[in-house]
């Protein structure tokens, strides 16, 4: 009796889970399908593109400098990842390695900055970037975002659990402090840092509000911003809009399918902002 009851609840559970998974991925499927439909099929609700065509992609590439914007996004996300990793590594190292005067205060200052939303600081930062003449540039997007509180807080945890004995023995050998960081700590935290790097890259790729304020010309903008103006342009070109959307998602999806286990693990370790 108990066995039977259990199996019914198991079936129910799986049904619910399958339903929810379908809801989770169906929009993605619909995006790809719509991008492949031809002009006649785009407005019917068939879930298979019987007359699949790439014409939407051709049109999307004609309408927008997609390659240029993808390159912008790639450079932006890579620079963001690099800067955020460097600043968080140096900070975590300093906090763990030395008994810094006022370290509690510094840590508090860093954690509290997590609570400052972009919407609160966007106007002064926008004015400053303009004064520096960095508007319409990728550097103008990247520099203000080059410290990630999230990255510091997560790396600090990993640095704290790093075995002290290894650092001490390096110290006794008379190694320089920077050498200890680069040759002793970093190689051992390689996978941790790689995981964090992947998350930061995804975050950077998806960055939206700040790049939208800094870049207005398509040529200078990351793909998300181009996509936004395409959506808002009110042309009824949904096939090619979905083609452009698919292209914009492609790098993230490729990274996800190659490194799925790694990404989920790193997410589990850090959460996401």
């Amino acid at each position: 009796m108990r066995q039977r009851k259990l199996s019914i609840s198991t079936i129910l559970q799986h049904t619910l889970l399958i339903l929810l998974s379908l809801i989770a991925i169906f929009p993605l499927y619909w995006m790809i399908i719509s991008s492949l439909k031809n002009e006649a099929d785009i407005f019917n609700s068939s879930i298979i593109p019987w007359n699949a065509t790439f014409s939407n992609y051709v049109y999307a590439f004609q309408e927008m400098p997609i390659l240029r914007m993808m390159l912008n996004s790639f450079v932006m996300a890579t620079l963001l990842t690099a800067f955020q990793l460097i600043t968080s590594i140096l900070t975590s190292y300093a906090l763990v390695r030395w008994q810094v005067k006022g370290s509690t205060f510094i840590y508090l200052l860093i954690s509290l900055s997590w609570l400052i939303p972009m919407q609160v600081i966007m106007i002064p930062n926008y004015v400053l970037v303009n004064q520096m003449g960095l508007n319409e540039t990728l550097l103008g997007i990247v520099i203000p975002l080059s410290v990630s509180t999230f990255a510091i807080l997560s790396l600090y945890q990993s640095f704290r659990s790093f075995p002290k004995a290894l650092i001490d023995s390096a110290r006794l050998d008379g190694e320089k402090d920077f050498f200890i960081l680069v040759k002793v700590i970093l190689p051992n935290l390689k996978s941790t840092i790689a995981s964090l790097g992947i998350l930061l890259f995804i975050n950077g790729w998806n960055e939206y509000l700040w790049p939208m304020l800094i870049t207005t010309e398509m040529e200078n903008a990351p793909i998300q911003i181009g996509l936004r103006s395409f959506v808002n342009s009110d042309v009824n070109m949904w096939g090619s809009l979905m083609a452009a959307t698919t292209i914009s998602c492609l790098p993230i999806l490729v990274i996800y399918f190659i490194l799925r286990k790694h990404i989920i693990e790193s997410f589990v370790r850090y959460g996401i902002k």
Binding site: A24, I25, P27, L28, W30, M31, I202, W205, N206, Y208, Q224, I225, L227, R228, F230, V231, L241, M242, T245, S248, C249, I252, Y256, I263, I264, F267, I272
Partner: peptide, 14 residues
């Protein structure tokens, strides 16, 4: 997990 890592703009468009 997939919806979480997609860009808000892409998701909005879809």
């Amino acid at each position: 997990f997939i919806p979480l890592i997609l860009a808000p703009v892409s998701v909005g468009a879809i």
